[in-house]
Design a protein around this nucleic acid. Structure first.
Lengths: 136, 136
DNA sequence: CCCTTAGTGAAAACGATTGTCAAAACCAGT
DNA sequence: ACTGGTTTTGACAATCGTTTTCACTAAGGG
């Protein structure tokens, strides 16, 4: 579970899988599986909700999408540059900015080591009001 | 919602409310509402699950407990020093260490301001294997 | 073209949390 | 202590996102 397996699972090329991936390509915001499902339907490329969930999970496992759990417990997905990074998300409009925080990584590692912890991972997300939304 | 209201709501002193608080006092780990409910039952102080949820919410609103949403979407609670801080949690045994990270706060504010975001909040949790668990 | 196996999806199951609402408890004022 | 007006409780139903089930379809190597 915590071992970083290549996870080069046997992936068959299907219409559905392709559709999910392509929709993610065109989106910059974090999107829920259900919203993605709606987008696909509206776009004419109907894909079962179950399949959307499965595709998303596969992509997440493969490290091709970021996963974010909101305070309400809803899981959101977003295609990403596969390097480790964090996000600054507008809590009103959802606009997202990718942030690389080497300083934080270093800090986290130091703190962890200091306490004898190993195999460290962390979650860090910033929420706020973007210029457009806070001026309203 | 995001304004830090005193939240001095009309709180009546009840057996249930007291029980929930006291159990939290004796715990160092993050605990789910359901587990808390079980603990109460086992302890002989039966409290309805609904009430546990409500008490926990009230405590969270009052800033007397920390709230943490796991990757699986489950909400965990933990009594805490009411200052802002983060946690280093062992993903195997759940052992938790409170961490104050002024550096991170500063960094977060700077990044946010840099992008014109205001009313910033953030979530940051570290996960790893504690000395005891990683040696196994 | 066929066959094996992976993938799909509708519907049911699930698990955490919240809403409902009548009954019970709290507490201020008598 | 007794009463009345509120608040709180809690069993149960309802929600909501997500996962499981399982019969059916399709990918793609032989």
């Amino acid at each position: 579970m915590s071992s970083d397996a290549p996870a080069t699972g046997p992936q068959r090329q299907t219409r559905q899988r392709t559709a999910v991936q392509s929709v993610l390509e065109g989106r910059d915001e974090f999107t829920s599986a259900q919203d993605l499902h709606d987008l696909l339907r509206r776009q004419g490329t109907a894909v079962g909700l179950t399949t959307v969930y499965r595709s998303l999970q596969a992509l997440a496992d493969a490290g091709q999408v970021d996963v974010l759990v909101t305070a309400e417990g809803q899981t959101l997905y977003r295609r990403c540059s596969s390097e480790h990074h964090h996000h600054l998300v507008c809590r009103t409009c959802g606009r997202t900015i990718e942030i690389a925080g080497p300083a934080v990584e270093t800090w986290a590692d130091a703190i962890a080591r200091e306490h004898g912890f190993s195999d460290i991972s962390h979650t860090l997300e910033l929420f706020g009001s973007c210029p457009a939304c806070s001026s309203g």
